[in-house]
Amino acid sequence: MNESIRSILKEHGRLAIEVETLAEAADLYQAGMTSHASVNVMLALESQFDVEFPDRMLRRGVFGSIASIREAVEELTAGR
């Protein structure tokens, strides 16, 4: 899953540094992701994993690192 997340970040995150070099816990906003870019990341994750983030997850922090994105997606896909 981390690879899919990294590839979405590469395409939509508009990060200032190479996605491959990012640690899982690294702050994506610090890495240059704007709030509008984070919306595109969110929408791309939804279509990639066929999930819909509920309102409680539409927060800045949920999309703040590869690890937190993975946790959120795992929660939504659990039991599939």
Binding site: S35, S38, V39, M42, L43, R60, G61
Partner: peptide, 12 residues
């Protein structure tokens, strides 16, 4: 829906 995220970020 993206807007809800932007609004939450703006408040935070």
């Amino acid at each position: 829906r993206g807007g809800r995220m932007l609004a939450a970020g703006q408040r935070e």
